[in-house]
Computed example of a mutant assay.
Amino acid sequence: MGGTRDGGDQDLVRDARDRDGEGRARNARPRDGLGRPLPYGAQGVSRQPEGVVRTPEQTVAEAQELLDAGKPFHAHEVFEDAWKSGPEAERELWRGLAQLAVGLTHSARGNVTGGARLLRRGAGAVEQWAAESGERQPYGMDLAGVVGWARGLAGEVERGGGDGGVVDAGARAPRLRGR
């Protein structure tokens, strides 16, 4: 069922997509622990609710639990909520942490280029935010440790670390608050 540019069956394509009550696209397909879509009707992992406002401490704790459980895609959604709902001054911190979680997700999926790129981009964003804000351990997070973890994992992924370049997301999860 493909759409055409001249209108043709474009409405059919639009109607077949998952939409919320306001017409925004929402993919209702079940997903695995790394956020990959599964066929409709398959048993998936519960998704993180979107748009949840958490305290920064709750964000860090919930994201760490998800990272430790090997669910970096879901942790990224928690960081994304903080990025979108938090104070303007902290948005780059949370965005950078979300990028790190997505980088780990791609690395666990075997996407070497995307994983390494997002790990480095997130590390750069977190490092820059820390330098500009003067905060090295906001909400108890060890940002220097997280940046070092991300850059080290990016290099390992590029060198083919893990099982054919695939890393175990739970085993390689960062410790946001240090060890």
Rank of each mutant, 00 (worst) to 15 (best):
G170D: 04
G165D: 07
G162S: 11
R159V: 06
G165T: 07
M141N: 01
D142H: 09
A154H: 08
V166R: 13
M141G: 02
G164P: 08
V167R: 00
G164T: 05
E156Y: 14
D163W: 06
R136H: 08
W149P: 00
V157A: 12
V167K: 03
W149R: 05
M141H: 03
G145H: 13
R151C: 01
V167H: 01
M141L: 13
G152I: 08
E156C: 09
G140F: 06
A150H: 00
E158M: 12
M141K: 01
A154L: 03
P138C: 08
D168E: 10
R151F: 04
R151N: 15
G170L: 06
V166A: 08
R159I: 05
A144R: 10
A154C: 09
A150Q: 01
G161V: 03
R159H: 08
A169E: 01
E156H: 12
G155E: 15
A144C: 01
V157G: 06
G165F: 08
L153V: 13
E156D: 13
R159T: 12
L143P: 02
D168W: 04
V167M: 05
A154F: 14
V147Y: 01
G145I: 07
A150Y: 00
A169D: 03
G165Y: 07
A144Y: 00
D163M: 08
A169G: 03
V166T: 09
Q137D: 11
E158S: 11
V167W: 00
V146P: 01
G145S: 10
G165S: 09
G152E: 12
D168Q: 06
V146K: 00
V166K: 12
G162R: 03
V147S: 00
Y139A: 12
G148E: 15
R159E: 14
D163I: 05
R151Q: 14
G160I: 11
E158H: 08
V166S: 05
